[in-house]
């Protein structure tokens, strides 16, 4: 075949595309030229008969023909594309079908979020039993021998020396008794006090305490920085902390910790009773007598501890007005906090 023949064939083929009147005719043209046994592949096979000098020009021409033909076919076929069926569109307003995920309990959520925040500061989580002995829950925490918190009216005593822990501090005692410093832990867990249940009290509640003890100096300023970081991470970047001196038997100095009100950003509102601050935590430098009880040399170690109620954080953070909601397990409440 000569180049002239090739050109004729090309013109003929493009003409056939042009005159095709329906999709079937167009398909016939495609098969005739481009099909497995079509004209174009056949021409390609004849390449070996072309003089070697002419082969490059010949090859280029065949390729050009093939491409032009394909384009023409594609362009023409669009004219024959069937219109989309009407009347059977997807009703995208129907409810989707996929099982919904459940939600974590707000208390778990606060615990896990807190563990992540303190985890970034190098704290690990520690836990202990709900049923504790007097030494771990009171004595080693330097509770005065006849402190009212030990009364039957405040603490659930199961037996002579067995009680439901009133704080998660006994976990601190356990960890310090078992491990040498440094100890850098948080202790989220369930605690019990003999309170009558109302909107803000629950005999069964949760606490999160933290403890950092080391042989190198640890200061109140470190404690303040740690809690300030937590406040910002948990309550938002606007949150600040304030220390007020207080008294706890297990820390000296002791402070109460206020977070600036997350609702009004410290300006004063109904939530913070116009003070701009919300009382959140108790904290302080571990009392040397506690170190003596766990067998640490009080002169050689430094440490701080802090603690707060998890329910309180959850209630403030999620705007939960009544602590009892947390134990009623109404799914219409729980599922809001996915």
């Amino acid at each position: 075949m000569t180049l002239a023949d090739l050109e004729k064939q090309q013109i003929k083929s493009l003409n056939e595309v042009a005159v095709a009147t329906d999709a079937a005719a167009l398909e016939q043209v495609r098969i005739h030229y481009l099909g497995r046994n079509g004209v174009v592949p056949a021409v390609m096979k004849q390449m070996k008969d072309v003089a070697p000098a002419d082969r490059p020009v010949f090859g280029k021409s065949v390729n050009k023909w093939s491409n032009e033909l394909k384009q023409a076919l594609a362009a023409k076929s669009q004219l024959f594309d069937k219109p989309k069926k009407s009347g059977s569109a997807f009703d995208y307003t129907l409810p989707g079908r996929w099982p919904t995920a459940g939600s974590k309990h707000p208390i778990s959520r606060v615990i896990e979020e807190s563990a992540a925040i303190f985890g970034k500061l190098g704290f690990t989580v520690a836990d202990g039993p709900d049923i504790e002995n007097k030494f771990n829950n009171f004595t080693a925490l330097n509770t005065p021998a006849h402190h009212p918190s030990m009364n039957e009216s405040d603490t659930f005593w199961l037996a002579e020396d067995q009680l439901l822990r009133t704080q998660t501090s006994p976990v601190q005692i356990r960890m310090m008794t078992e491990h040498k410093p440094p100890v850098r832990i948080i202790t989220p867990g369930r605690t019990y006090r003999r309170d009558t249940t109302d909107a803000t009290h629950s005999a069964n509640f949760h606490q999160l305490e933290g403890l950092y003890v080391d042989t190198k100096p640890v200061s109140l300023a470190d404690l303040k920085a740690t809690l300030a970081y937590y406040a910002k991470e948990m309550m938002g970047s606007e949150a600040g902390v304030r220390f007020r001196p207080h008294f706890f038997p297990f820390t000296e100095p002791s402070v109460e910790v206020d977070f600036s009100c997350h609702v009004c950003a410290g300006k004063g509102c109904r939530v913070c009773k116009m003070s701009g601050w919300i009382e959140i935590a108790g904290a302080g430098m571990v009392d040397p007598r506690v170190f003596e009880f766990v067998g640490y040399p009080p002169e050689e170690v430094y440490g701080y501890a802090f603690g707060f109620g998890i329910e309180r954080i959850a209630m403030i953070k999620y705007g939960i007005p009544d602590i009892r909601w947390l134990y009623e397990n109404d799914v219409r409440f729980l599922e809001q906090l996915r």
């Binding site: 989580v125 300023a221 740690t226």
Partner: peptide, 16 residues
């Protein structure tokens, strides 16, 4: 009492 400088302190090696 300043509460601005966050010292890394020790990192806990306890298993959680």
């Amino acid at each position: 009492i300043p509460g601005v400088v966050l010292e890394s302190g020790s990192v806990s090696t306890l298993d959680d």
